[in-house]
Amino acid sequence: MPILEQGYEPYRGPVRTGGSRALSIAVNALRRNRRWWVIALLLLSWLFGSVKEYFMVFVCYAPSAFFRQAPGGDAAWLTALANHPNFYSDMMATQTFWAIVMGALVGAGEIAEDLRTGALVFYLGRPVTRLDYVLGKALAVSVPVVLVTVLPVAVLFAAQALFEGTWTWFGDHARVLPAAAAYGLLLSFFVSGFVLGVSAVARRRRWATVSIVAVLLSLGLVAAVLAPSREWTSHREQREARDRILDAKTPEERKAAYQRLSDAVDPLGSPSARAEWRALSPSASLAAAGRDLFGRPVPSNFPGIRHWILVLGAAAGLFGVLWRRVRAVEIVA
């Protein structure tokens, strides 16, 4: 028996810090989720996000930029692509969907299965703290989130920088990478808190996945019913807004009418009477928070910080639930 030959000396070798234990947990969780369809979905998300935004740029923005000679100069499609102010934040907003999907795929079963099978005892019976465990699992969910959001943005930014590469261009786009990183962090916090919190309550991977989808869909549905987006109301609302601009008698009225028109043509905007309910949709609130980070204006139906409260508050609350649930498996027959 080889182990007997070791003499059963207590281990006195180097012991790593808590951070690396969390890293071990994250690496193991990611290894276990390294399945072909997860990788295929990751590639698809890159393709989808990039193609959609390029499509928007080439089909919607570039021709007009080409013909109008967009500000900044020598026009051409590349300039339009590189200089369009909404390109990166729109791309991040598109990737939010994929971030939630990938986070749910990796994280839905992480806590649920450990709780159901009692595998938690393998962690808590070791020099692993509850913080190590939660941090490790959150890190495992955050990696795919960052991979589908920050990575493609960084790659495209680098590619465009190669073409543009002037100090002026860098100056104009100085905010992109920090904003993308900040949004990636925010998204990681939200998705890991949401997915792992639900996973800790559901106790089974399948139920966790169903619950995540159900919560997102129901919140989105409620928000869509109470505060429909422009696709449902735009024509009538836009007409009304334009009429109000024409009818405005004071600068304040005109400003309000312009804002109403702006909201009516913004995918996040809702000109309905209950427009504030739009913030109830997690994806809309995340997109609004993303715009704050990228320095873009947020529609007036997201007044104050309610979208931040929803995004950070929901995630923090679910992390709290997770923290409570991650305890020893207490069996009393």
Binding site: Y11, G13, P14, V15, R16, R21, S24, I25, N28, R32, D114, T117, G118, A119, L120, V121, F122, Y123, G125, R126, P127, V128, V329
Partner: peptide, 29 residues
């Protein structure tokens, strides 16, 4: 050392990888 009653092994891992993973959590290289 603790050998719990729960049959809670990670089904998708092989035995050496599973035990090595738990040793990593104890601070082993």
């Amino acid at each position: 050392g603790n050998c719990p009653q729960q049959d809670a092994l990670y089904e998708d891992m092989d035995a050496p990888s599973f035990v090595a993973y738990l040793m990593r959590l104890r601070g082993f290289g």
